[in-house]
Design a protein around this nucleic acid. Structure first.
Lengths: 150, 150
DNA sequence: TGCGGGTTGAGAACAGTTCTCAATCGGAGC
DNA sequence: GCTCCGATTGAGAACTGTTCTCAACCCGCA
């Protein structure tokens, strides 16, 4: 696993684009970047309410981060929309359906082959794809095995 | 491309499971199966309102079809949730981001290789994946080229 | 034809998201 | 340090999409 991207990198992205990196944005970024699993907007808003970050700001900011490619949208097993950092620029999320832990993988070579083939066969101009893989992480499996007694 | 599955096949699926295939369900199925592109629930409800199909019924029925694997959920370019028939059991949707036309492709071999690798590397017990490829179909590209004048 | 269980439609209720608007913040210029 | 100005923020209203409730209805069965 890679380290979470340091906050100052993100600041650089913002500065480069001339967008203010405010206290609230930093807090929201740290919430997602600091977690090793995907979180919903509601969870972020709940967690940051105590820090004086409003719900609307969380929505706005998550949208902003998504637009900038800094957060990726994934789904948990119930279909809830979650967000995960760091960017999925050229990687894809492997999401634990139980605890929502996210492991990133490349896999882009595979998909790019497929895209090239598809484009040729279908006549579509391919502009992107969305690939998520779902599984249960080893910890959750262990926990589940332990639960068998109860 | 494969032909859309005939309605009597779907009826057989329902009969086999002992679920009534009502007039409303038939209409909703025909709406999705008859379209060559993904449609939202709202669109289906609007289209079928005149046939006396209520909104709640559309929601219920689309959920039912999804559970049975008869409809697949995809997203258009704006992120709107759409549904498309026939089933994506072991195929994946290639979605036109403009007109939402859906072409199905297999590509499962590619992903299964990837899944096996991922499972081994990450320790996750892989239980599924979600792959959508986005592009612009040739018709929409032609239309867009034509628009260049205006 | 009458019965019973599942399905349906209308609309209320609910949850998630977006919008509105005044207050606040932060950087630039003095 | 102070003022100005535009962007951002928070609170809550408004809106949208989805689910729930419940009486009416439909269909298979006897």
């Amino acid at each position: 696993m890679t380290d979470p991207p340091p906050t100052h990198d993100i600041e650089a992205v913002f500065r480069e684009k001339g967008i203010p990196f405010t206290r609230q944005r930093r807090l929201i970024w740290e919430f997602f970047a600091g977690a090793d699993r995907a979180a919903t907007i509601t969870e972020a808003a709940d967690a940051l309410r105590g820090d004086g970050v409003g719900q609307a700001t969380v929505y706005r900011t998550v949208t902003l981060f998504s637009d900038l490619g800094l957060l990726a949208r994934v789904q948990d097993r119930r279909g809830d929309i979650c967000y995960t950092a760091p960017p999925i620029g050229h990687s894809h999320p492997l999401v634990c359906g139980v605890c929502r832990k996210v492991v990133r993988f490349d896999g882009d070579g595979d998909v790019r082959d497929l895209e090239a083939r598809l484009g040729a066969e279908s006549g579509f101009a391919i502009y992107g794809h969305h690939l998520e893989v779902y599984g249960i992480c080893s910890e959750c499996r262990t926990a589940k095995d332990g639960d068998h007694a109860g």
